[in-house]
Each structure stands twice: as structure tokens, then as C-alpha cells.
Amino acid sequence: MEIHAYEKLWLGAALLLIVGFIGTVAFGAVGAGVDMIDDDGGTVDPGALDQHPKFGDPGVYQSGPNEYDVYVVAQQFQFQPGTAEAIEVPVDSTVTFHVTSADVIHGFEVVGTNANTMAIPGQVSTFTVETDEVRDHGIVCNEYCGSAHHAMEGTVKVVPDDEFNATDGGA
């Protein structure tokens, strides 16, 4: 089979590009420690979220010095907390989100950032972010979830340490 010299060159360059892509992602995961959604969050019974120790009373829980866990329940058409009241976390802290759904599949996206996950009934998504700046972020549901999907939104407030009150954000 005859392969043109230019085509061989192209083939080699294409393979190099592909291996390079895989290499950067592998480095990101292993070397730079980029956190990705996986099966760490475990499962819950979506019909009995109200009996769950954390999802039964979703909100912000302090888990260590400058470390917080935020439990969020997504349901048609709100985040709890997030929609009726903002999720409040202190600046310069490590925040782990735990997100699940009470009904259909939803999305949980902190707008304009890579804090983004699917919320699937029965499954818990966990991801960790660092809060490095005092500001408000929007949250949207980015997976179609029903006829008022476009109204499903919320807010995350990153506040200065002295304004943070765990019981407020804790809902």
C-alpha cells in the first residue's frame, strides 16, 4: 500500500497532537491535582432525602479550620440552599460541595467558572473549590429539567471572614 510522504508526515503530526492532548490531561489530573467528578460521593435514597443526616437539612457545615462542606439538593425548579437564600461561604477557605437531586437530572453550574456538575437522583456529586475572592457568583441549572427550567437559579456569596455566620448559610 502506497502512502504519500506528506501523508506520513501528517499522520505522525496528528499522532503527536493526540498523545500530547492525553499527556496534558494526565498531567493535570496527576501532577497539578485537578479535581474531577467521580464516584467518591456515593449514593443516597432519593425518596428519603429528608431523613439523610446532611441532605435532610442541606446547607453549609464547617468541617475543619477554613474547611467547609456545602450540601445542596436540586429539585424542580430550585437549589436548596441557593435559590430562596444564597449559599454563603467565607473567603480563603476550602469548600467541598455535595450535590444531589430529589427528582429529575439537573445541572449545578457556578456561572463562568469550572465549578460545574450534573445532579443525578440517587447519586452524590462532590467537588472542592478554593474561595480566593470576595464576590457573588450566580448558579444555574444547566440541564433541562422541565417547563420552568429557565427559572432555576441561585447565588453563592463568598464573604469576608468576619461577616461569615455559619448558622446563616447553614440554613
Binding site: E7, W10, L11, A14, L15, L17, I18, F21, I22, V25, A26, A29, M36, I37, D38, D39, G41, T43, N116, T117, M118, I120, G122, Q123, V124, S125, T126
Partner: peptide, 28 residues
């Protein structure tokens, strides 16, 4: 399903590797 809970990161990595190699026929 990179952003789906309940699927281990390793399985996602395998899917990504296959995906990247799928670039090859399109580049050809």
C-alpha cells in the same frame, strides 16, 4: 458524562483516550 457522579475517574480517562484517538481518522 465527564461531570456525572457515580462513574470512576479511570473509566472517564479511558473514554477520553479513545476519543482523542478518534481525532486521527478525521485528521486523515
Amino acid at each position: 458524562q465527564y461531570l456525572d457522579p457515580g462513574i470512576a475517574e479511570g473509566f472517564k480517562f479511558i473514554a477520553m483516550t479513545n476519543t482523542m484517538f478518534l481525532l486521527l481518522p478525521s485528521l486523515l
